[in-house]
Design a protein around this nucleic acid. Sequence first.
DNA 1: ATTTTGCGTGTAATCGATTACAAGGCCAAA
DNA 2: TTTGGCCTTGTAATCGATTACACGCAAAAT
Lengths: 344, 344
Amino acid sequence: MLRAPSIRDVAQAAGVSTATVSRTLTNPDVVSEITREAVFRAIRETGYVVNQAARNLRRRETGAVAVLLPNIANPFFSRILSGIAEVMSEAGLNVFINDTTPVTRDEHRFPEYASHAHVDGLIVLDGMLRHDALLDRGPPELRPPLVFACEWIEQVARPKVTIDNHAAAAQAIRHLLALGHRRIGHACGPPGNVLSIARLAGARAALAEAGLSLPDAWAFPGDFSLESGAAAARAWHAAADRPTAVFCASDEMALGFIGEAQRRGIKVPDEISVVGFDDLEMASHAVPALTTIHQPRADIGRAAARMLLERMLLAPAERVARPAPHVVLPVTLAVRESTAPPPR
Amino acid sequence: MLRAPSIRDVAQAAGVSTATVSRTLTNPDVVSEITREAVFRAIRETGYVVNQAARNLRRRETGAVAVLLPNIANPFFSRILSGIAEVMSEAGLNVFINDTTPVTRDEHRFPEYASHAHVDGLIVLDGMLRHDALLDRGPPELRPPLVFACEWIEQVARPKVTIDNHAAAAQAIRHLLALGHRRIGHACGPPGNVLSIARLAGARAALAEAGLSLPDAWAFPGDFSLESGAAAARAWHAAADRPTAVFCASDEMALGFIGEAQRRGIKVPDEISVVGFDDLEMASHAVPALTTIHQPRADIGRAAARMLLERMLLAPAERVARPAPHVVLPVTLAVRESTAPPPR
DNA sequence: ATTTTGCGTGTAATCGATTACAAGGCCAAA
DNA sequence: TTTGGCCTTGTAATCGATTACACGCAAAAT
């Protein structure tokens, strides 16, 4: 029966003990040069690869971190993942990616991952996870360090990397106000989502500054998806009294909205201005190119990954005691072609 | 010092041996009901979670599979990943996702993952990996089972799940021919890529059937990206003698092409028909909605995952001996609004 | 010449779960 | 009463790498 070469085979081939092989691998400086060379040669000859399971068991760590996100298929997340993967692979850590809602939409599944037995750390991009699932897993010292990125859960005090959604939404609205719009609607994100709430509140605040308000009829329900953007466009089109501009909670919604509007013969931005949120790659290639809030997605991922690495270095007790930092990354408004002064 | 509860703690709490606890977990039928209950109660009380590293070490497996893909940020892959994750999580396996080109574009990095020490199986979605990296890793019995999905590497004989790219491209071209087009161009995928090659060849074959050919000047270079689609549109627009239809090797290219064309005042499909490939979600929401080849992306992922699970059950020697199956999933042409008879 | 210092290496315990094997208990058949 | 068999459980070896500790030897210090 063929078996993968183990550290013993290497030790034998090099004529040293397993301890020396192990040291050569993790701390080459402490062994003499002659031994080191012999060990490396033996490793090459035998084709030895360290057995991670054994290493992890002994070191009491797993060498992996997990990312929990609501939907892998959402292009918004992909660049954040690249950012995370970039930092983590530099640090020699594997990244598990876990979709929290593969089956049902509402009950965000909480995978076994949260446990120390599986990963050394956790990055959570899903604010809709049940917070008790995150908290009810044994004493805090035993739970792996966790950081939130983009979304978060109010009840769970942990480090976060986010943008200022409230201010960004206000900025989008102010852009529309500056163009002369007075009748402004909002295509909302999924109800209950922290981002939806903050963006709606920011929009409301900016409108209030100008002495305006957002009538309920102009707060179109949605869920960040293309389809819900299209639905918002239909609702907008069907309304008797309609706004001259719509701020959408995501680019997918904005693109869905514009597509549906154009399909109905509406001219964008001549008849309706549309602002998005995220700045997906598609935003600048669409016609009209989408005016939107640019999020530094790769930076968010990198920052979250670095913050997690930092927390992983802390002793458990210290980690629990230390306050959770909150990094807020700046966003910019990318003004393109989908916004213009209101008609007439 | 606080330590996670181990199987010993459970055994002690339940008043049994660790062997019995282990059996209760993996094979509940062999222990008596009374003992079983006691063990489960003890597990609940102690908050025990099995230590994966220890289990993996003993069982000589890792409980994880890896997916190697060229670019997480490409929306084409996301739904394939969902399909893979769905099947794998049902099977109780973790999925590592690994971007093979995080740093440099050309040298597709081959991660440590290919080794048995890290994963129990591998799904490769990147046909540009250096094949020697895949093959030069010790004796074949020791390498983890591998299946290709979407893309593949000719030199590496392994199970694959793909579509018939040649036939699909031919189908797209025939659709344009049926509309009356005689001057048809192609926006190509990245050079050297198996998909690019098959799609180009399929397009050529279908043109040849009709007694036509694809002039070099109408084979616009590209790399599947939005930007390269826009570049193709610029090249098309600048040409003195131009085709009345373009078949793009990906939806992103098609959308980039259409965007750039529209931006230059060209009407799609009135002045140029465009066909895509993939059927991304965006395809049906764009204006005009994109005529494209629909790929069953989730099915591809699921099929690849199932095939990998099957191979993982085989004894190493048998796996090496057995021929590699090739599953070809059917595609359909989604005819929408971006194609029409040629002008005049 | 003797002691000290320190470098390089080996021995052996350890991480936590699994499982082959042995053994004990109980009941039925002889 | 004894024997055989089944069911349940425990003992202990094992997976492969890491690391505390000890030891041997050579160079430096006394």
